[in-house]
Design a protein around this nucleic acid. Structure first.
Length: 580
RNA sequence: GGCCUCAUAGUUCAAGGGAUAGAAUGGGAGUUUCCUAAACUCUAGAUCCAGGUUCGAGUCCUGGUGAGGCCA
């Protein structure tokens, strides 16, 4: 464009896209944006540009112009060359790490008073997958977890266990530790509700119920004792949290999720308090008459935000300030990414501003990867109303479905029971992870427990199945598969070229996914690749073809697809079986 | 009340300001002497409403309507 019209085209003006189906061509240049500056009609520019590209670029076979669109046809050799270069490269599309400073990704961040549910699953899967994707895009990554292990909600389950637990343990009950503790959290709420009903009947006003509730007072008392490091309370706290951690570890392990470092709010809230107090000393914060400490954000068009309550206790923001500082000191990150639900949008906006006001320039590295809620058909999940979808239960159910379906299809009689178990695990987790990750993180998504997650169509198992089928094909090929260097590119069929064109987009898909923080980009890419490959597989014989150069070409193409499917599913934390 | 999101086939999801809005599922009709039918083919079906910006708007702006969220 510059040579022809002397126009410095901005990146935004220079639009090159895939040619639409129904038109001849591989790539299309949109020339409307140059029409004004070149003082020519779009079709005239198109003709000139097409001719110039054809004569100067050896890759361009031909071109045609439709209105303001120049469709470029590339030579088949371009696609064949891609195949020959990368067909057997498991790292195709993966960028070597080039930066020294890590990206720190915080995700999961559970409370230790109840087991993980579907909302946590979305959080965990997103965090884990974004970590994998950023790493594949060349950034070193540290995964961290911040456990919310203190506070009134923890004391509630502790109190309930003390009152009504009769010494029950995970061992004695056979329950997973996190579920056991969750049971007492619910039990507290049940008794608390009963007590409140009773008080209300005695004529206590609605907003005074908390004060008059004996249970709530006892829970508060327990929290005070905890803050004072009362040995008996600390012992119970350590014990019950230990049960929860054991339970969480099992769930994390099953999901294939791990962390480089785990922070505990019980360790960081005091750092936060100190930060707030020293900022108050410097006159950066306001102390009100009742003793509470606030940040005035009116210069940012926001209101005031409380940082310490009048009784000196900390709020969520307080500990997050401390954790951020600690984390910065631990990792010196290029970016601090928080995978947290969009209900916390305001919180993170404020966190960043407050840290900045306190004089920490690294506050600029904070980024909130805000994701949407998982909604049920009747609205949001609420643990108190018993409408949560438990993570362990869900995985169990999916496992059962995977087992039943696989056994019905009867294709794995040759597998040992241990291998079969692993396969069911892979398929069920593949289905669950893909179901969650294929949706744009920013958007709310719906989960209907009545309809179990599908295994056909746009699903994880569909993609896994294609991989298994290719592996089977390659096994059957035995030694016949050699690099198709002798293959005549003019023999290439459209269905084959379509697959190669899609394969060529993989590196770009990784870049975009890393940029957007969106595993959905990878999921959608892989689905469309697999869709195209299945069309090829359905119509075109591989092993039954007679010309051995063509057989080798088709096998190499299939192997290339299998590689990319495996690699891209890896980025979603999904493993692909060789047989299913 | 203030602020922030979101709105696309019956349903669940796609679509960097570009051509004819794609899939899946469900509905209808098909494909197995042949490399795994968890597959493939055909078919009907959608941009909440009203303005505006632009050569061009599902996408940007304004105002409605509806849903969700945040505000010691």
């Amino acid at each position: 464009v510059k040579e022809l019209y002397n126009i410095e085209a901005s990146e935004k003006q220079l639009i090159i896209q895939k040619t639409l189906p129904g038109y001849e061509g591989d790539f299309t240049v949109v020339v409307f944006p140059f029409s004004k500056a070149a003082k020519m009609s779009p079709p005239e520019i198109g003709e000139e540009l097409g001719a110039r590209l054809k004569s100067t670029l050896s890759e361009v076979e031909d071109y045609n112009v439709v209105k303001g669109f120049v469709n470029l046809v590339l030579k088949n050799e371009v696609w064949l060359d891609l195949l020959l270069t990368h067909e057997n490269d498991p790292d195709w599309g993966i960028t070597d790490k080039s930066v020294a400073k890590p990206v720190v990704i915080e995700f999961s961040s559970p409370n230790t008073n109840k087991p993980l549910h579907l909302g946590h699953i979305r959080n965990n899967l997103l965090g884990d997958s974004v970590a994998r994707i950023k790493e594949a895009a060349g950034m070193p990554v540290k995964k961290v977890n911040l456990v919310n292990d203190r506070g009134i909600h923890i004391c509630k389950s502790m109190l309930a266990w003390k009152k009504w637990g009769e010494g029950e343990t995970p061992e004695s009950s056979g329950m997973k530790g996190d579920h056991l503790v969750g049971k007492y959290y619910v039990l507290f709420d049940k008794h608390y509700k009963q007590e409140k009903d009773k008080l209300a009947k005695q004529g206590v006003e609605a907003d005074k119920l908390d004060e008059h509730s004996e249970l709530m007072q006892q829970a508060r008392e327990m929290l005070r004792k905890w803050e004072a490091r009362d040995p008996e309370v600390m012992e119970l706290w350590n014990r019950m949290n230990g049960w929860v951690y054991e339970g969480f570890d099992k769930t994390y392990e099953r999901m294939g999720i791990s962390f480089d470092k785990v922070y505990h709010e019980s360790d960081t809230y005091l750092i936060g308090k100190e930060l707030v107090l020293s900022a108050l000393d410097k006159g950066l914060l306001i102390k009100k008459d009742d003793g509470s400490v606030w940040a005035d954000l009116s210069s940012h068009n926001l209101d005031e935000k409380i940082l310490l309550r009048s009784d000196g206790t900390s709020v969520y923001m307080t500990q997050d300030l401390g954790t951020a500082k600690l984390r910065y000191e631990d990792f010196d990150p290029s970016q601090m990414l928080y995978v947290v639900g969009n209900e916390q949008d305001y919180h993170f906006k404020v966190l960043k501003i407050v840290l900045k006001e306190m004089g920490f320039d690294w506050a600029d590295t904070i980024e909130h990867l805000s994701y949407g809620m998982v909604e049920l058909p009747h609205g949001k999940m609420k643990s108190r109303e018993g409408t949560v979808v438990d993570a362990d239960d869900l995985m169990d159910e999916m496992y059962d479905t995977a087992r039943k379906m696989t056994q019905e299809l009867g294709k794995i009689e040759n597998l040992e029971s241990e291998e079969a178990h692993e396969l069911f695990q892979k398929i069920s987790l593949g289905a669950l992870k893909y179901f969650i990750l294929k949706v744009d993180p920013k958007k709310n998504m719906l989960f209907n427990p009545e309809e179990s997650i599908n295994f056909t169509g746009n699903t994880g198992p569909f993609i896994q199945y294609t991989h298994a089928r290719i592996r089977s094909l390659l096994r059957k090929a035995g030694g016949r598969y050699a690099k198709p260097e002798a293959y005549d590119a003019s023999l290439m069929l459209d269905a084959e070229k379509d697959v190669l064109k899609k394969l060529a987009q993989y590196p770009a898909a990784i870049r975009e996914a890393a940029q957007e923080g969106s595993p959905a980009v990878i999921a959608n890419y892989t689905f469309s690749l697999v869709k195209l490959y299945n069309q090829f597989y359905q119509d075109i014989p591989v092993l039954r073809e007679e010309n051995s150069d063509i057989v080798n070409f088709r096998l190499a193409l299939s192997a290339f697809v299998a590689n990319v499917v495996k690699s891209s599913m890896q980025l979603l934390g999904i493993s692909v079986p060789d047989q299913m």
